[in-house]
Design a binder for these strands. Structure first.
Lengths: 201, 201, 201, 201
DNA sequence: TATGAATGAGCTTTCATTCAT
DNA sequence: CATGAATGAAAGCTCATTCAT
């Protein structure tokens, strides 16, 4: 990409980023058309290619931007002293909700990359995918798991919670009217139920 | 579609069905190319269109076929006298594994339709989607939930399990070497953990 | 073409000929599809190609057949002793009407070849076109033109009448319900008017 | 169609229009290929579809354009005070010749639409066809028919002249070297002959 | 920096023709 | 003699990318 992009007015940068996030999140790499992105962003075709060289360049950039932005949110919003398993989960979800204030389609876009199938697109984001995973890994490692009863397999518990959080967000997006607060409340209910089920008697 | 398709040798029918399931599951409606399907099936371009009229026709047909096939598997493989919550889940997963013997990409294809974004494709399968959901609904209604402790919200529990089963299968597919038996074993482990967590003390 | 075609039952031959005449007349060479011809004739695809080798073969054959048939009609139906300009015209039109009893689309097909644009099709019928023109030439040469006043240019008169007869038939076909008798009556009216206009005072 | 087409250099617009007129006039709707049009116009495939959306869009546009252009020619070139039957005919033919200076295939294209068979093409131009017919109707209604003798049926006379004018133009086109002046001269000869035949004695 | 007209490779679909039965 | 499943070249159309302005 062309780094002069960052010299543009922040508002214009975000318009372009949000347009790309939305179109890629909704249609996947192949289904997204540069015409749609350009229209949504209110800029010309030439400009998009001027800054990002190719469709793949746009995709790579917004993935990079999203992971960095989300990493920042997670590292600043999650209390470094906290060690409670479910409390950390709640703070993670809260951080995501916060990110959605500026970039409503960012999380949805990040989830969509999991199902991405176009190999060139996958290849281009591979490395940065790992980086975000590591951030989550660090947060997970801070979680205290000693409170759980013997029948709890921590890895399985985590995977179930991750899949559930993701599933709930996707459901909310699919149903159209996405409201961060309502989603957060529903997520918290699931976490609370799991807390009560897993506590040592 | 052209019903003469069913007069073809079963082996050829299945080659075409499996090719379409694979390409659509891997690439989504838009990303899938009829060239790829035709190549995978080892038939000519013209023949595909002779039987299915259009790309959308192929998509609609294999969705219809998949829901009917899966419905049959579920109704024959799940014991009608069984009422145990987790046992029914296991038999459902077992039925899916059985279907994958003949149609390895069928379940993956069915899952992929949830993320489908192309509106014409969505519209074409809408009705049949509901039908399969109802089959699952019937099975779910047979599950005995009275054994659970007060802290268990059955709906939430179900959604977590559904999302987890789906997540596990997708993970196995994503990692390439898909082995039904191994997947089934892993799924059973998750179900067993949840059984031990939810039983009344 | 394969001459064994003539060994078929006359009824089947005519079914094939009429199907081809209809489809080619209605759609032109390019627009006509062998599928349509085959369906209209109630025979299989293979059979059409067995007898006529190619689409162009079918076209060439029915053009050949039509010119020969029409030549026969003209030579037998037009009175060889007749020399009156307009009476001969009427007998010509009457002969055409007679042909349409067995082959309703034959004349329409012959007219359509005038507008034919596909060069290979044109090339294939070129020679036979001339032959039919000559038959008309012979009939025209028998017409007595000495009755006309000085202001009549016989060549121009003939061209006007030819174009009018053709125009009237096309109009009748375009308007759907084609009835030979009604058309013939209308044609006769035009001829009568021209007779009264051209007679020496 | 995309109205930005009219922002293009007039020369380019006309190149595209003339290319389409030529290819459609020569081959009919079905037989005309967009590849040929594009090659004749010296533009790319994409551009044609950018401006006209579809093959049918091109067809509809040039029909619309042709009827409007021809209407303008007729209303400006035919003397509004003139009432002589044959003189008006001559001015009509003169107007056509004038149009052919800029758009050599326009009249030929308009004639070709009469034989059009593809239903979607017919449907798309239906309304505008009527509009041009009305313009001719107005001109015809101005023609003084009281000079004719009793044996003249004005409607029949008109139809013969129309069919003859059309037939002559088609003949000239078919024979390749189309020269408006020569055609006009020939047409005038026919009209003069008919004038002398139809005048009251 | 910014535009959008223009390109052409690639995709879906059609249809004359072939050939095993 | 008769069938119709099967083929693949060609046609209509899309869209990422380029480039003159």
């Amino acid at each position: 990409m062309n780094s002069k992009f960052f010299d543009l007015a922040k508002e214009k940068q975000d318009r372009m980023i949000n347009a790309a996030l939305k179109i890629f999140a909704k249609n996947g790499y192949k289904g997204a058309s540069t015409d749609e992105i350009v229209k949504e962003a209110g800029i010309s075709k030439g400009l998009l290619f001027h800054y990002f060289v190719s469709k793949l360049g746009v995709y790579t950039f917004i993935f990079d931007y999203s992971t960095k932005y989300m990493t920042l949110e997670l590292t600043t919003s999650v209390d470094k002293e906290e060690s409670d398993f479910f409390e950390i989960y709640k703070q993670i979800e809260s951080a995501k909700m916060h990110a959605l204030k500026n970039y409503p389609y960012m999380q949805e876009f990040l989830y969509s990359t999991v199902y991405e199938d176009v190999s060139e697109a996958l290849l281009a984001i591979e490395d940065k995918k790992t980086a975000l995973t590591e951030v989550y890994g660090d947060l997970y490692s801070r979680m205290n798991t000693e409170v759980f009863g013997a029948e709890v397999d921590t890895e399985k518990l985590r995977k179930m919670i991750d899949l559930t959080m993701k599933g709930l967000m996707e459901e909310h997006f699919r149903e159209g009217s996405f409201q961060p607060e309502m989603l957060f409340k529903e997520e918290a209910d699931y976490l609370d139920m799991m807390r009560s089920l897993t506590m040592k008697v």
